[in-house]
Amino acid sequence: MRIRPFDFKAATSLADALNQLDQAGSNARVLAGGTDLVLNMKKKNILPSMLISLHPIKNLEYVEEKNEMIHIGALAKHADLAIHPILEKYVSILCQAVGLIGSWQVRNIGTIGGNLCNASPAADAVPPLLALDAAVVIATLHGEKTVPINSFFCGPGQTVMKPNEILKEILIKKPLKPSAGCYLKLRRRKAVDISLAGVAFQAESDPSGQRIEQVKIALGGVAPTAIRVPDAENCLVGLSIDDAFQKIPMCADKAANAAKPIDDVRATADYKRTIVNVFVQRCAQHVLTTLKNYRGQS
């Protein structure tokens, strides 16, 4: 399977990449891991005139704690993020999700920045980042700008980024109170398949572990972009953990109602909606049980 000819430039730094991208015009694309871009070039879905490769840039693969924030470089690979100690400690939901992307081969070269910029409605990294209220830092020729993840995506394959901008890093606020998260994804195969539906569920209790203070639920693959479902979240906020267990079915119904899935080659809309309901219940059970156990330990 041949790829149509194109020009190739290797960027030595982010600034160099931005300059080259600006000069190259709108038919140039940025290459990170390439697991999706090269595939789409093979399939002739994307026919760029030039690729600007970020592979020589080694200082964008970091995961760092700075005060109350976690910074993830856009070129960090899924396989590294899935087992990163800082992420496992604070935001294990993200580790769970990126650990389910593609196959080991894909996770070893695919990057989180690529997963976001590709803007697939079913991207696995997105629902956890929505549920964590993350933000992304976009590098432009005139400096950097920070965009909340919930306003980053415009539709399938579309983001707010202009053709001459590059995603630099992802910012996540560290949870300060007892928190737990769960990501579940439905696939037709047990591995190496994109998700039919993904549910991310992140909750925080008060420091004593009695009351649910915050719930964030995000759904992937069941709307033009991944979405938050505030009505479902509000069912559980403010309740004691034991009361919250009772409200799980109501929360799941609201989440399923808020989903806007379509019939496609992978599954029917009805099926995806049912799955959202089931997965929200399973996630909620898991997260509430984890929070309850924290209380037991403290």
């Binding site: 595939l39 081969q105 894909v106 070893n108 070269i109």
Partner: peptide, 14 residues
Amino acid sequence: RPVHACLTLALQVD
């Protein structure tokens, strides 16, 4: 680390 040689551009692994 295992990767797909079919989806990796040669220039990308310089």
